[in-house]
Computed example of a mutant assay.
Amino acid sequence: MSVYQYYEFQAIDRPLTRDELDGVRALSSRARISATHFVNEYHYGNFRGDERKLMERLYDAHLYFANWGSRRLMLRLPTALLPSRSAEPYCAEDALSCWTRKGHLLLEFSYDDEDGGEWDFETSSTLASFTALRAELAAGDLRPLYLAWLSALTRWELEEDVDEDEYASAFEPPVPAGLGRLTGAQRALADFLHVDPHLLTAAARASDAAPPSEVDEESLADWIRTLPQREKDTLLLNAALGKAPQPGPTLLARHRAASHATKKPCTSTSRRSAAELLDAAYRVRSEHTRQQGRARAQARRAEQRGRDGHLDRLAANTGQAWQDADHLIGQKRPGPYDTAVTLLKDLREVHDRAGTPEEFQRRLDDLGERHRGKPSFMQRLTDAGLTAG
Rank of each mutant, 00 (worst) to 15 (best):
G178H: 12
G178E: 15
L179H: 04
L179I: 06
G180E: 05
L182R: 02
L182I: 07
T183I: 04
G184Q: 06
G184T: 04
G184C: 06
A185F: 09
A185G: 12
Q186H: 02
Q186W: 04
Q186G: 03
Q186R: 00
R187F: 10
R187Y: 12
A188G: 08
A188V: 10
L189K: 13
L189W: 15
L189I: 15
A190L: 09
A190C: 08
D191Q: 12
D191M: 12
D191A: 14
D191V: 12
D191G: 13
F192Y: 09
F192N: 04
F192M: 12
L193Y: 01
L193S: 00
H194R: 14
H194D: 15
V195A: 10
V195T: 07
V195N: 11
V195I: 10
D196L: 11
D196V: 07
D196F: 08
P197S: 11
P197E: 12
H198L: 06
H198M: 10
L199W: 02
L199I: 06
L199M: 03
L199V: 00
L200D: 00
T201C: 01
T201N: 00
T201M: 03
T201L: 02
A202N: 06
A203S: 01
A203D: 02
A204G: 03
A204R: 03
A204K: 05
A204W: 06
R205Y: 02
R205W: 05
R205N: 05
A206P: 01
S207K: 03
D208H: 03
D208K: 03
D208E: 10
D208R: 03
D208P: 03
A209G: 11
A209D: 13
A210Q: 00
A210Y: 00
P211T: 12
P211R: 11
P211C: 13
P212N: 13
P212E: 14
S213R: 05
S213V: 08
S213T: 03
E214H: 05
E214P: 01
E214G: 05
V215P: 06
V215W: 01
V215Q: 00
V215T: 01
D216R: 13
D216A: 15
D216N: 15
E217N: 03
E218I: 03
E218F: 06
L220F: 14
L220K: 07
A221R: 07
A221M: 10
D222A: 14
W223T: 09
I224W: 06
I224Q: 07
I224N: 02
I224D: 07
I224K: 08
R225G: 11
R225I: 15
R225Q: 14
R225S: 14
T226K: 14
T226C: 14
L227A: 01
L227W: 04
L227Q: 07
P228F: 07
P228A: 09
Q229R: 11
Q229A: 14
E231I: 07
K232R: 15
K232G: 09
